[in-house]
Computed example of a mutant assay.
Amino acid sequence: MTSTGANWLQKALFPIIAGVIILVFVGAWAAVLIQVWSFIPSEEAPAVVLGDGLVVAAGVLATTLGTQTASALGFAVAEVRAIKGDSGFSVVAVAQSLRIETYVAVFAYLAIGLAVFATWLFRESAAPELVNAFALSLLGWLIGASGVIFKPTGE
């Protein structure tokens, strides 16, 4: 492999892995949401029954993306505080320190999470426990993020 090819691979490997994780997360949760919203409850089947593989994959992916984005945001906050101190700390400074993959992951997690939350609110009786669990997990993630957003500036 040429030096240029190796450099490209070194720079692109982790963004490619991140992109695949995000795409699989979106795909798995889109499959869950489509099944819940297209489901018509009956006496024999009052709620959607998802396949075990989809339940495990969607649950693991939601946990993975939620924890990874939360930790990336937490590390960014710590790095900005370490470099700029409390006087130079701001949400904007934290946002500027993030990589594009983190932005994409956060927006994917929020978009799917909000769709799952709406599903939990409006289709609760048809939704499996997986939907309820992710909706509550999203609330916890948002509450954690709000600690930075609503932090007093000290000025």
Results as ranks from 00 to 15, higher is better:
residue 49 V to P: 00
residue 35 Q to M: 11
residue 135 A to S: 13
residue 132 N to Y: 10
residue 89 F to G: 04
residue 126 A to I: 01
residue 26 V to I: 09
residue 57 A to W: 02
residue 131 V to S: 01
residue 52 D to K: 12
residue 24 V to E: 07
residue 91 V to N: 14
residue 84 K to H: 12
residue 130 L to K: 01
residue 30 A to I: 11
residue 47 A to L: 09
residue 82 A to N: 09
residue 151 K to S: 07
residue 96 Q to Y: 10
residue 44 E to Y: 04
residue 28 A to S: 08
residue 7 N to T: 12
residue 155 E to F: 11
residue 120 W to P: 00
residue 115 A to F: 09
residue 19 G to P: 00
residue 77 V to N: 12
residue 50 L to M: 06
residue 59 G to R: 01
residue 96 Q to V: 01
residue 122 F to R: 10
residue 22 I to K: 01
residue 94 V to I: 13
residue 97 S to Y: 07
residue 70 A to Q: 10
residue 8 W to E: 09
residue 145 A to G: 15
residue 10 Q to P: 00
residue 83 I to W: 00
residue 52 D to I: 07
residue 14 F to I: 14
residue 130 L to N: 06
residue 68 Q to E: 09
residue 99 R to F: 08
residue 146 S to Q: 10
residue 142 L to I: 09
residue 84 K to E: 15
residue 132 N to I: 12
residue 117 F to E: 08
residue 57 A to Q: 05
residue 17 I to T: 12
residue 3 S to D: 13
residue 88 G to A: 09
residue 81 R to K: 15
residue 7 N to E: 12
residue 23 L to Q: 07
residue 138 L to H: 03
residue 6 A to Y: 11
residue 49 V to K: 08
residue 29 W to R: 00
residue 49 V to A: 13
residue 121 L to G: 01
residue 26 V to K: 00
residue 106 V to F: 04
residue 91 V to M: 13
residue 121 L to E: 06
residue 148 V to L: 11
residue 119 T to M: 02
residue 44 E to R: 11
